[in-house]
Amino acid sequence: MKTWLFRPFEFIAGYTALFIGLGIMTLTAIVCAAGNIHLDGVIDLHAGSEVGLGRAFFETALNWLSFSLFLYIAGMLTSLSSIRILDVYGTQALARAPLIIPVLATMLVDVSKVNAYLQHKLMNDGQAVTLGAGDILTLGLVGLLVISCVIWTIVLMYRAYSISCNLKGKKAVISFIACLLLAEGLTKLYTIL
Protein backbone atom coordinates (compact mmCIF):
# COMPACT_ATOMS: atom_id res chain seq x y z
CA MET A 1 0.00 0.00 0.00
CA LYS A 2 2.78 2.41 1.03
CA THR A 3 4.70 1.53 -2.15
CA TRP A 4 1.64 2.24 -4.30
CA LEU A 5 1.12 5.61 -2.57
CA PHE A 6 4.72 6.81 -2.66
CA ARG A 7 6.53 4.65 -5.23
CA PRO A 8 3.91 3.74 -7.85
CA PHE A 9 6.49 4.24 -10.59
CA GLU A 10 8.17 0.96 -9.67
CA PHE A 11 5.12 -0.62 -11.31
CA ILE A 12 3.75 2.03 -13.65
CA ALA A 13 5.63 4.17 -16.15
CA GLY A 14 5.62 4.89 -19.88
CA TYR A 15 2.30 5.10 -21.74
CA THR A 16 0.23 3.69 -18.83
CA ALA A 17 1.43 6.44 -16.48
CA LEU A 18 1.05 9.04 -19.23
CA PHE A 19 -2.58 8.14 -20.03
CA ILE A 20 -3.67 7.84 -16.38
CA GLY A 21 -1.85 11.09 -15.56
CA LEU A 22 -3.34 12.96 -18.53
CA GLY A 23 -6.82 11.72 -17.58
CA ILE A 24 -6.50 12.99 -14.00
CA MET A 25 -4.89 16.25 -15.19
CA THR A 26 -7.86 16.83 -17.51
CA LEU A 27 -10.28 16.29 -14.62
CA THR A 28 -8.18 18.60 -12.42
CA ALA A 29 -8.28 21.35 -15.08
CA ILE A 30 -12.08 21.01 -15.41
CA VAL A 31 -12.52 21.24 -11.61
CA CYS A 32 -10.14 24.25 -11.56
CA ALA A 33 -12.29 26.03 -14.16
CA ALA A 34 -15.50 25.15 -12.30
CA GLY A 35 -14.16 26.28 -8.92
CA ASN A 36 -12.05 29.23 -10.12
CA ILE A 37 -8.85 27.71 -8.83
CA HIS A 38 -5.49 28.61 -10.37
CA LEU A 39 -2.62 26.14 -10.60
CA ASP A 40 -0.28 29.05 -11.31
CA GLY A 41 3.00 27.33 -10.57
CA VAL A 42 4.40 23.81 -10.52
CA ILE A 43 3.20 23.26 -6.95
CA ASP A 44 1.00 26.35 -6.47
CA LEU A 45 -2.71 26.48 -5.91
CA HIS A 46 -4.67 29.71 -5.54
CA ALA A 47 -8.40 30.32 -5.42
CA GLY A 48 -10.31 33.50 -6.15
CA SER A 49 -10.11 35.15 -9.55
CA GLU A 50 -12.03 33.73 -12.49
CA VAL A 51 -10.47 30.84 -14.42
CA GLY A 52 -11.77 29.85 -17.84
CA LEU A 53 -11.51 26.27 -19.09
CA GLY A 54 -8.82 27.26 -21.62
CA ARG A 55 -6.72 28.97 -18.99
CA ALA A 56 -7.12 26.06 -16.57
CA PHE A 57 -5.88 23.64 -19.24
CA PHE A 58 -3.04 25.97 -20.21
CA GLU A 59 -1.81 26.34 -16.62
CA THR A 60 -1.98 22.58 -15.98
CA ALA A 61 -0.18 21.77 -19.23
CA LEU A 62 2.48 24.48 -18.76
CA ASN A 63 3.32 23.23 -15.25
CA TRP A 64 3.63 19.63 -16.37
CA LEU A 65 5.45 20.25 -19.66
CA SER A 66 7.96 22.80 -18.38
CA PHE A 67 8.90 20.88 -15.22
CA SER A 68 9.21 17.58 -17.12
CA LEU A 69 11.40 19.25 -19.74
CA PHE A 70 13.78 20.63 -17.09
CA LEU A 71 13.92 17.20 -15.42
CA TYR A 72 14.57 15.47 -18.73
CA ILE A 73 17.46 17.84 -19.51
CA ALA A 74 18.85 17.40 -15.98
CA GLY A 75 18.56 13.63 -16.32
CA MET A 76 20.35 13.66 -19.68
CA LEU A 77 23.17 15.71 -18.18
CA THR A 78 23.62 13.81 -14.92
CA SER A 79 22.45 10.22 -15.39
CA LEU A 80 24.55 7.42 -16.90
CA SER A 81 21.43 5.46 -17.89
CA SER A 82 19.63 5.72 -21.19
CA ILE A 83 16.55 7.74 -20.31
CA ARG A 84 13.26 7.53 -22.19
CA ILE A 85 11.49 10.88 -22.53
CA LEU A 86 8.19 8.96 -22.35
CA ASP A 87 9.03 7.77 -18.82
CA VAL A 88 9.93 11.27 -17.63
CA TYR A 89 6.74 12.88 -19.00
CA GLY A 90 4.55 9.87 -18.15
CA THR A 91 5.64 9.53 -14.52
CA GLN A 92 5.52 13.32 -13.99
CA ALA A 93 1.95 13.37 -15.34
CA LEU A 94 0.95 10.66 -12.88
CA ALA A 95 2.85 12.35 -10.04
CA ARG A 96 0.52 15.36 -10.39
CA ALA A 97 -2.56 13.19 -9.70
CA PRO A 98 -2.87 14.02 -5.96
CA LEU A 99 -3.39 17.71 -6.84
CA ILE A 100 -7.01 16.91 -7.74
CA ILE A 101 -7.74 16.34 -4.02
CA PRO A 102 -6.85 19.88 -2.78
CA VAL A 103 -8.49 21.36 -5.88
CA LEU A 104 -11.74 19.56 -5.00
CA ALA A 105 -11.37 20.39 -1.31
CA THR A 106 -10.84 24.10 -2.02
CA MET A 107 -14.29 24.16 -3.60
CA LEU A 108 -15.73 23.50 -0.12
CA VAL A 109 -14.38 26.84 1.12
CA ASP A 110 -16.29 30.07 0.52
CA VAL A 111 -13.21 31.81 -0.89
CA SER A 112 -14.90 35.17 -1.51
CA LYS A 113 -16.00 35.29 2.14
CA VAL A 114 -12.50 34.44 3.37
CA ASN A 115 -10.96 37.01 1.00
CA ALA A 116 -13.40 39.71 2.18
CA TYR A 117 -12.61 38.82 5.81
CA LEU A 118 -8.85 39.02 5.24
CA GLN A 119 -9.16 42.23 3.20
CA HIS A 120 -11.09 43.91 6.02
CA LYS A 121 -8.93 42.48 8.79
CA LEU A 122 -5.52 43.13 7.24
CA MET A 123 -6.09 46.19 5.06
CA ASN A 124 -9.15 47.69 6.75
CA ASP A 125 -10.82 47.65 3.36
CA GLY A 126 -14.39 46.67 2.42
CA GLN A 127 -17.24 45.46 4.59
CA ALA A 128 -16.71 43.70 7.90
CA VAL A 129 -17.28 39.95 7.53
CA THR A 130 -17.33 37.47 10.37
CA LEU A 131 -16.23 33.88 10.01
CA GLY A 132 -18.15 31.30 12.02
CA ALA A 133 -16.62 28.31 13.82
CA GLY A 134 -17.71 26.09 10.91
CA ASP A 135 -15.95 28.34 8.40
CA ILE A 136 -12.73 28.34 10.42
CA LEU A 137 -12.86 24.56 10.92
CA THR A 138 -13.44 23.97 7.20
CA LEU A 139 -10.64 26.42 6.33
CA GLY A 140 -8.25 24.69 8.74
CA LEU A 141 -9.04 21.19 7.51
CA VAL A 142 -8.84 22.19 3.85
CA GLY A 143 -5.56 24.02 4.52
CA LEU A 144 -4.13 20.91 6.16
CA LEU A 145 -5.32 18.74 3.27
CA VAL A 146 -3.83 21.15 0.71
CA ILE A 147 -0.42 21.13 2.44
CA SER A 148 -0.44 17.32 2.81
CA CYS A 149 -1.35 16.77 -0.82
CA VAL A 150 1.23 19.26 -2.11
CA ILE A 151 3.93 17.48 -0.05
CA TRP A 152 2.69 14.12 -1.37
CA THR A 153 2.86 15.49 -4.93
CA ILE A 154 6.44 16.72 -4.43
CA VAL A 155 7.47 13.32 -3.04
CA LEU A 156 5.88 11.60 -6.05
CA MET A 157 7.54 14.02 -8.47
CA TYR A 158 10.93 13.31 -6.90
CA ARG A 159 10.39 9.52 -6.96
CA ALA A 160 9.24 9.75 -10.58
CA TYR A 161 12.41 11.66 -11.47
CA SER A 162 14.62 9.29 -9.48
CA ILE A 163 13.21 6.17 -11.17
CA SER A 164 12.76 7.50 -14.70
CA CYS A 165 16.30 8.98 -14.79
CA ASN A 166 17.97 6.40 -12.51
CA LEU A 167 19.35 9.01 -10.13
CA LYS A 168 19.81 8.77 -6.37
CA GLY A 169 21.34 10.68 -3.48
CA LYS A 170 22.74 14.21 -3.56
CA LYS A 171 22.88 14.40 -7.34
CA ALA A 172 19.18 13.59 -7.62
CA VAL A 173 18.07 15.92 -4.82
CA ILE A 174 20.10 18.93 -6.00
CA SER A 175 19.11 18.61 -9.67
CA PHE A 176 15.46 18.06 -8.70
CA ILE A 177 15.37 21.21 -6.54
CA ALA A 178 17.10 23.20 -9.29
CA CYS A 179 14.53 22.04 -11.85
CA LEU A 180 11.66 22.78 -9.47
CA LEU A 181 12.93 26.33 -8.91
CA LEU A 182 13.50 26.90 -12.63
CA ALA A 183 10.05 25.59 -13.59
CA GLU A 184 8.41 27.53 -10.76
CA GLY A 185 10.20 30.67 -11.99
CA LEU A 186 9.09 30.07 -15.57
CA THR A 187 5.45 29.49 -14.65
CA LYS A 188 5.44 32.53 -12.36
CA LEU A 189 6.98 34.62 -15.15
CA TYR A 190 4.06 33.63 -17.34
CA THR A 191 1.60 34.69 -14.61
CA ILE A 192 3.29 38.10 -14.29
CA LEU A 193 3.37 38.66 -18.06
Binding site: F9, E10, F11, I12, A13, G14, A17, L80, S81, S82, R84, D87, T91, I163, S164, N166
Partner: peptide
Protein backbone atom coordinates in the same frame (compact mmCIF):
# COMPACT_ATOMS: atom_id res chain seq x y z
CA UNK B 1 8.44 -9.14 -13.51
CA UNK B 2 5.28 -6.97 -13.31
CA UNK B 3 7.50 -3.92 -12.83
CA UNK B 4 7.84 -0.71 -14.82
CA UNK B 5 10.34 -0.38 -17.66
CA UNK B 6 12.63 2.13 -15.89
CA UNK B 7 12.68 0.02 -12.70
CA UNK B 8 13.93 -3.00 -14.67
CA UNK B 9 16.40 -0.85 -16.63
CA UNK B 10 17.74 0.57 -13.35
CA UNK B 11 18.15 -2.95 -11.96
CA UNK B 12 20.08 -4.00 -15.06
CA UNK B 13 22.25 -0.87 -14.82
Amino acid sequence: MKLSYPTVRNHLD
